[in-house]
């Protein structure tokens, strides 16, 4: 065919077909998306520190293992209360003259998704220890350690943020571990990663591919209890550890804890729901309001509590979801 023997016509046709399709599936959708989406009114713009932290996050290629997108599927519910929407990314612009926009959505989830990590794990102390070496707090973690974001000082100053690192991780060196600006910025960025609520009570899109509810009533009508150990692993274990003993000087032990063993579960429910800062004098950082942040239900809280009250040699009376519900209601009216 003459057409195929004329290199100008052949390659022009090839070029035009490709460019035409490119415009349809890449350029126009990108423009449209930019035009039709505005940031959510409730979204908090990144602070100055967080912006610097995002740069640290980008420079170290964290996106290789951490996604920042809650997909619209049920299995992603763990990572955020609602699916991510285009508006969540609308406020992201070109980083600078040299670098592109960073949505950091990622394509690999070797580590957990971080869309909502600011709510899920807000503790500064935990994040710093974890950054120094993740295996201090999560034994099984394969995340790289970032000790170069910390310095060793024999006499840390007043403004220095000291990180409580167990001696075995210092590899024979002495001194106090102090977080550098880099580490603090990075944690500031992580703490700022929170899913903004949708405006004026608009309902979030529903998650698809719902999992079949396993907890069907048994033949005798009783509802089987939730798996407290699994819930503990997801919500509590990173600080209090699998053996319940916490981390000396950083996170308190639940084994033999007065509050956990108390027959009256009120204080324990309060701490789980609203956090705790009663033991700062002993060097323990404040506990975040895990129950509220992670939207734990009364049933889930009961299951976690029962796991904590009956494991690691603890033997306190088990609680019922109904009891917890009552306490939650009472606490609500107290706050009011």
């Amino acid at each position: 065919m003459e057409f195929f023997d004329n290199y100008k016509k052949l390659f022009s046709a090839t070029f035009l077909l490709f460019v035409g399709l490119t415009i349809l599936v890449a350029i126009l959708p990108a423009f449209r998306n930019e035009k039709n989406n505005a940031p959510l009114p409730n979204a908090v713009p990144l602070s100055e520190d967080a912006v610097k932290g995002k740069a640290v996050y980008i420079a170290n290629g964290c996106v290789a293992c951490h996604t920042q997108q809650v997909r619209i599927v049920d299995m992603d519910k763990t990572w955020g209360p609602r699916p991510s929407i285009a508006a969540d990314y609308a406020d992201m612009h070109r980083t600078d003259f040299w670098r592109n926009t960073a949505t950091l959505m990622g394509t690999e989830r070797t580590g957990p998704d971080l869309t909502n990590i600011g709510n899920r794990q807000p503790s500064l102390e935990w994040n710093l220890v974890h950054l120094y070496n993740p295996r201090i707090v999560v034994k099984e973690s394969v995340m790289p350690a970032y000790p170069w974001m910390f310095t060793l000082k024999t006499n840390p100053g007043k403004d220095d943020v000291v990180v409580n690192v167990p001696a075995e991780y210092l590899k024979g060196k002495s001194g106090k571990v102090v977080a550098t600006k880099q580490a603090l910025h990075l944690v500031a960025y992580l703490q700022s990663l929170k899913q903004a609520p949708l405006p004026d009570g608009r309902p979030a899109p529903e998650f698809l591919y719902k999992r079949e509810v396993k907890a069907l009533p048994a033949a005798d009508g009783t509802i089987p209890a939730l798996d407290g150990a699994a819930l503990y692993a997801v919500n509590c274990q990173s600080c209090h550890q699998a053996n319940g003993e916490g981390l000396q000087g950083a996170f308190p032990s639940l084994k033999g804890s007065k509050i956990v063993l108390d027959d009256n579960p009120e204080a324990m429910v309060d701490i789980i729901l609203h956090g705790y800062n009663g033991r700062e004098k002993e060097g323990f950082p404040p506990m975040p309001a895990i129950g509220t942040d992670n939207n734990l239900s009364a049933e889930e809280i009961a299951a976690i509590m029962n796991h904590e009250r009956t494991s690691w040699g603890n033997s306190a009376k088990e609680v019922t979801p109904a009891q917890i519900k009552e306490i939650i209601e009472a606490l609500k009216s107290d706050v009011k």
Binding site: F15, T22, I27, A30, A86, Y89, A90, H93, T101, M105
Partner: peptide, 26 residues
Amino acid sequence: AALIFGLVISLVAYIPWWQDGLGETI
């Protein structure tokens, strides 16, 4: 064709105008 396409995609990817927000991901 591969050379033409290689150039087209590099231009599309590195020209910044259409890459705010999710545009970057698309």
